[in-house]
C-alpha cells in the first residue's frame, strides 16, 4: 500500500475543499491495501500559489487547486477557464492528454483529473448596470474587483478591473469603494458579499479551472493497479462532483434571488455577444502567449 500526501488550495471548511475531501474519501475507500491519500492541510501549510512547486519538488505528492494560480508559467490554464467541453468529453477526445503534456512540461506535475469544472462565473454589482440598445450591458464607469483572468473581459465591457484582497472586499462593498465583482455562484455567500450585491448578470461565463495533480515520480512509482484506481476514481469524481456543484449552484441561485439579488438577464444575441467576449479574451490570451498547444486545446476544449 502506498500513501500519497496531499494538500488543497482551500481552507478545509469551504465547498471546494470539501469536494476534494470527497475524492480523497473515495480513493481511500476503494484503495484499501493499494493506495491511500493523506490530507496534509490547506493554505495553512503552503501558500496556495506555491503548492504546485511543492508537488513538483516532491515535498507533497498530490495537490488540488485552481490551475490559473500558475497562469504565469502555464498560459494553457486559459483553456480550462475558456473551455466549454466537459471533463468526460475531454477524457475521450484527447483534450486531457494535451493538457497533461503541457502541465508536465511547464509545471513538472502530472495532471490526474479536473473535477468541479461545471462552475460558472458571474458579474455581481451593487448598482443597476446600464443596458445598451441591443440588450447588452454597458459597465463603463464601474470599478469591479477582478482576478487577473477576468481583466480583459471586464475591460471589454467598459468596466475598470481593480484588485482587492479577499479580506477587504466586505468593507469595500459596504462603503462603496468599488461597484461589484466577478465570482462563481458557489461560495458567493460564504463571505456574505451577497448582502451588498444587488444585481447579478446572467448568463454566467467561463468554466472551473480546478485540477488534481501529482508529482511525476510519485505517479511513475505507483503500481499499475494503483494508477488505474486513481485514474478511475478521478474520472468518476469528475462526474459526481459535477452533478453536486450543478445542484449546489441552483440552490445558491435560488437563495440569493430570495435574498434580493436581482438577475439582469441577457437574452438571445446580446447574451451570445457577452459570452463571446468572455471566452474569446481567454483564447486570445492563450494565443498571445505563443503556446504550441493552442490549436489542440482550442479543438478539444472549446465547442461554442
Amino acid at each position: 500500500e502506498t500513501t500519497l500526501k496531499a494538500v488543497s488550495a482551500f481552507p478545509s471548511n469551504l465547498a471546494f475543499a470539501q469536494s476534494f475531501q470527497g475524492f480523497v474519501d473515495l480513493v481511500n475507500e476503494r484503495g484499501k491495501g493499494v493506495v491511500q491519500i493523506q490530507m496534509m492541510g490547506g493554505p495553512e501549510v503552503f501558500p496556495p500559489n506555491q503548492q504546485i512547486d511543492a508537488v513538483s519538488r516532491g515535498i507533497v505528492d498530490m495537490q488540488y487547486g485552481p490551475a490559473t494560480y500558475s497562469i504565469g508559467s502555464l498560459p494553457e490554464a486559459y483553456a480550462f477557464v475558456g473551455g466549454t467541453v466537459d471533463p468526460v468529453e475531454t477524457r475521450k477526445n484527447g483534450g486531457l492528454d494535451v493538457m497533461r503534456e503541457a502541465m508536465l512540461e511547464k509545471l513538472g506535475v502530472y495532471l490526474l483529473g479536473r473535477p468541479d469544472s461545471d462552475i460558472r462565473f458571474y458579474i455581481y454589482t451593487t448598482g443597476e448596470p446600464k443596458r445598451t440598445g441591443d440588450g447588452g450591458v454597458d459597465l463603463s464607469g464601474m470599478q469591479l474587483r477582478a482576478l487577473p483572468i477576468y481583466n480583459k473581459f471586464f475591460e471589454s465591457l467598459g468596466a475598470v478591473p481593480i484588485s482587492v484582497p479577499v479580506a477587504d472586499v466586505y468593507t469595500g462593498l459596504e462603503r462603496n469603494t468599488f461597484d461589484g465583482l466577478g465570482f462563481p455562484m458557489i461560495g458567493i455567500r460564504d463571505l456574505s458579499w451577497d448582502k451588498f450585491l444587488k444585481y447579478r448578470i446572467d448568463p454566467g461565463f467561463f468554466q472551473g479551472d480546478l485540477s488534481i495533480v501529482l508529482n511525476p515520480e510519485a505517479w511513475e512509482g505507483l503500481a499499475p493497479e494503483a494508477q488505474e484506481l486513481l485514474t478511475q476514481a478521478a474520472a468518476d469524481w469528475e462526474v459526481q462532483s459535477g452533478e453536486h456543484f450543478t445542484g449546489l449552484a441552483k440552490e445558491t441561485e435560488a437563495e440569493i434571488a430570495k435574498a434580493g439579488v436581482e438577475t439582469v438577464q441577457l437574452e438571445g444575441e446580446a447574451a451570445e455577444k457577452f459570452l463571446d467576449a468572455a471566452y474569446e479574451t481567454s483564447w486570445q490570451a492563450l494565443k498571445e502567449s505563443g503556446s504550441p498547444y493552442y490549436d489542440r486545446l482550442r479543438e478539444t476544449f472549446y465547442d461554442r
Binding site: 481552507p11 471548511n13 469551504l14 479577499v166 479580506a167 477587504d168 466586505y170 468593507t171 459596504e174 460564504d190 463571505l191 456574505s192 448582502k195
Partner: peptide, 17 residues
C-alpha cells in the same frame, strides 16, 4: 470593520454581518 472577523465568519460559516 475587521478583516479577521470577516475571514473567521467565512471559514467558520458564521453569518459575517
Amino acid at each position: 470593520p475587521s478583516s479577521l472577523a470577516v475571514l473567521l465568519g467565512s471559514l467558520a460559516k458564521i453569518d459575517v454581518g
